[in-house]
Nucleic acid binder design. Structure first.
Lengths: 337, 337
DNA sequence: CGAGCCATTTACATCGATGTAATCGCCGTG
DNA sequence: CACGGCGATTACATCGATGTAAATGGCTCG
């Protein structure tokens, strides 16, 4: 009585075979209306619910997919997660959410399905992975990458055109007459991560405008948090000559920078402009509100889930896809909008 | 070759029995060093990983717990989720994250372990549930409630002392000379939800200060988002006499209100004070920075996981616990801090 | 040299659900 | 009246891992 009822218990209660109960549960078409009713009543009476372990063991699928992001308290990932979950739920799948903390080992674990082989596939937003890491990956587990491009090109990937997005953002600043544009969170060298790609776009825009590229206007950060943005902005404003615009590679950095600028008596956008990336909700309501590059999160989520489910259905499918999601620049008060 | 290797495959490869492989995996103590090595090599060679369905079916446990929150893009829940995941991971469990959207049916589904009986227990942060809903719940699934008190008192529960927290926040405003304090997101009547409890605390503080309680200073909201805070603040500031302080029942509401006040030319804290609840990271960096009631999220997460795991280990355990987590008021610029 | 002990390993049954293929029972038809 | 056909139902094997209990084998000690 205390134990959970099994299919067999329901079957006995209803006076039919276990398989018939199974058929009812799975809406098998050739079940008489009468039997269906009797079984359903037994199910309700006993409070039966399917044991997923058993089903999964038999079917080889869990109906669950994993979404692995660096950190949930980075709003972009929380918002993205929300979209992914909605999308997956709508398609009859459950989402298992993991945080990697941007730690390489934990991202690797995601690639390998973690210790627990619970999910049918993984949507991974990598930060720390190395192209070589992909070589060792287990091809039996479908994986879709978000954000960073898979250098290897052997994995499905979804992201925005980071180079173009950054170029456009920079052009926007240039069009407002800004000439000394600093990049917070940028990277001049190193692997083709998001930071590098966006810095490249910034560089392109400068070049097209005939402006010199200065290494020390590109400031790397430890993490993409408010805190780091504040610190970077503080450091940048101590320099001479001061920058007249900050291109921050995510909104948290930008919002942190805004706060620091405020504390130090710099007025945005009177003294300098600020631009972010991601269009998190906070950016719409900050004072001043933040101009930002808005990736189409819903498109990203939808494409990621679609692609992953396709791969799960047909692992041996065609060549890996590289889906470029849309983005647009939302001009708000920090650039005079 | 394409298929995933099973325990049996590893056993054959290593020349031992399946059970021995299992013993190695589970660190059974009486396995010779030599056998252990051989088996481990076989595991590595074949890239074997445990099939959780099989294990779970046998053991009756999944090692997974579900955390069901209203919405991930409410920063408080994202931050809480992060803590819960860290805590659970540290104790060898995986967290399955669900969004209920504050919809009663989906919260109910959480209580019942969803369609998928995948997790060993549930940590639920309910918003829409009715006390009666608890009557129908399946007692076989351990559940810990967060935030709202279970009226029934039959379920483990963790939360802060909402009445006291709100009273203290109100007292803080009163001590600054504020006398017309509006409550955004409050509730005068209705079930003992968080909103109601906090409003009660506010009321107590007024009473203790000998001030009258005015119904129309308590403004309910549709949801606890920026947007709603902005709208509520706008509406409140149109009244005569104007409030001289806003007690917002979460930080999102407060930040939205700040934005609206800024747009309408009201200065905080010169013209009026603003206080929030939750201490999300954004509140530390807003302009002006937000005074807020900070629940001890880590304590909440830790207690929730501990309690749930206890219940999982011993479902027939003692009486339900009601853990009151700590909180403190963090005074920042919106109240002159 | 045999009994007894202990560390190590193994055979077997089992967890719960479902795919496969077989069976059952009923109807209509030649 | 026998038979083909078909819808409904069932028996059985199986997915992968592990608990139980028993077997194996080496070693000590009387």
């Amino acid at each position: 009585m205390a134990a959970r009822p099994r299919l067999k218990d329901v079957a006995e209660y209803a006076g039919v075979s276990p398989k018939t109960v199974s058929n009812v549960i799975n809406n098998y078409e050739h079940v008489s209306e009468q039997t269906r009713t009797v079984v359903q009543e037994a199910i309700d009476a006993l409070g039966y619910r399917v044991n997923m372990a058993g089903r999964q063991l038999r079917q080889g699928r869990t109906g669950m997919i994993t979404l692995a992001v660096p950190e949930l308290d980075v709003a972009y990932f929380a918002e993205l997660a929300k979209h992914v979950m909605n999308e997956a739920t709508g398609r009859g799948h459950t989402v298992l959410l993991h945080q990697t903390g941007a730690v390489r080992e934990r991202e690797l674990a995601a690639l390998h399905g973690f210790d627990a082989q619970f999910s049918d596939g993984v949507i991974l937003s990598p930060l720390a992975l190395d192209p070589r890491d992909f070589a060792t990956r287990d091809r039996r587990l479908p994986v879709v990458l978000l954000g960073e491009r898979s250098l290897e090109g052997s994995t499905d990937h979804i992201g925005i055109d980071n180079v173009r997005a950054a170029r456009e953002a920079t052009e926007h600043l240039l069009s407002r007459g800004r000439r000394r544009i600093a990049v917070i969170g940028g990277a001049v060298r190193g692997r083709q991560g998001t930071d590098r790609l966006r810095t490249d776009g910034y560089r392109e825009a400068l070049k097209a405008a005939g402006l010199p590229f200065e290494d020390d206007l590109v400031l790397p950060v430890d993490a993409y948090h408010w805190h780091d943005g504040a610190r970077a902005a503080t450091s940048l404003m101590r320099r001479e000559p001061r920058p007249d615009a900050l291109l921050c590679l995510n909104d948290h950095l930008a919002l942190g920078a805004l706060r620091a600028l405020h504390e130090q008596g710099h007025s945005v956008p009177a003294d300098l402009d600020v631009v972010g990336f991601d269009d998190i909700e906070a950016s719409r309501f900050s004072v001043p509100s933040l101009t930002t590059v808005a990736p189409d999160k819903q498109e990203i989520a939808r494409a990621a889930v679609s692609l992953l489910l396709e791969r799960i259905d047909d692992p041996a499918a065609t060549t890996p896809q590289d889906h470029v999601a849309g983005h647009r620049i939302i001009v708000r008060e920090t650039t005079g909008g």
